[in-house]
């Protein structure tokens, strides 16, 4: 459903992404792993057209979205949960979720989905009226994911959801990601925690200095000696 063909990105004078091609099939969890600075986040940002200086083709549901403005891309059903959460710090939890549904017009549907998000993250319901900036890191991550879901996306792009979270929380977040996927949302997951990412993904790409160096079924990759050595701490 999402297809990236021969993508190049130039970023602050640096050729950050050097010809990436990848595709995500409906209903899958696809994971993009690699070290810091390998270009994972740049890749996601380019899909959402937040980064301009790019060459190549990106299509979603057979529509060319390479140069569509970011807000149109969201309307088509691509929601991103950014690296570092990026919740709106001066808004309450409920307002943040409401912002997530910004492109939607069906009020009852929004209310229904808000209920679903609260069911998924009971902690957010408890803190409904708290300012997002005062939440803990884990709660902010939940809120960011919840906000992404509120757009009722066909595909959810997750950027480093485990960043800065305690191991227990990471596990919780990942089980929720799996749950979201089982409820019918396709997921493209960018992760540094390769172990976790490979454990829930169907398919994975390994990114190194702007190039895809390896791709395959997540299970196969997890067993790969090279991957183990470089990313799984051998």
């Amino acid at each position: 459903m999402l297809k990236v063909t021969d993508l190049h990105v130039y970023y602050g004078g640096i050729h950050a992404i050097k010809g990436i091609s990848l595709s995500v099939k409906e209903g899958q969890i696809v994971s993009l792993i690699g070290a810091n600075g390998a270009g994972k986040s740049t890749c996601l940002n380019t899909i959402c057209n937040l980064v301009n200086n790019s060459k190549g083709k990106i299509s979603f549901l057979d529509r060319d979205i390479t140069s569509a403005p970011p807000h149109k891309i969201v309307k088509l059903g691509v929601a991103q949960v950014p690296e570092g959460r990026k919740v709106f710090p001066q808004m309450t939890v409920a307002e943040n979720l409401d912002m997530g549904a910004y492109v939607r017009k069906d009020k009852s549907g929004v209310r229904h989905d808000m209920g679903k998000v609260y069911k998924l993250f009971p902690r957010l319901l408890e803190r409904k009226n708290q300012l997002a900036g005062t939440l803990s890191g884990g709660e902010q991550q939940m809120l960011a994911i919840g906000r992404g879901l509120m757009a009722k996306p066909r595909i959810l792009l997750l950027d480093e959801p485990s960043m800065g979270l305690a191991p227990l929380l990471v596990r919780e977040i990942f089980s929720i990601i799996r749950e979201i996927n089982s409820l019918g949302t396709t997921i493209l997951l960018v992760e540094q925690n390769a172990n976790m990412a490979l454990s829930i993904a169907n398919y994975a790409y390994v990114l190194e200095t702007g190039r895809i160096v390896l791709e395959g079924e997540a299970k196969v990759l997890a067993a790969d000696e090279k991957v183990k050595a470089a990313y799984l701490g051998g």
Partner: peptide, 17 residues
């Protein structure tokens, strides 16, 4: 470090099943 269970859990991750 490589062998310490706490480190593996927090960072290196558990062995993939």
């Amino acid at each position: 470090v490589r062998k310490d269970p706490r480190v593996i859990e927090a960072y290196l991750g558990e062995e993939v099943s």
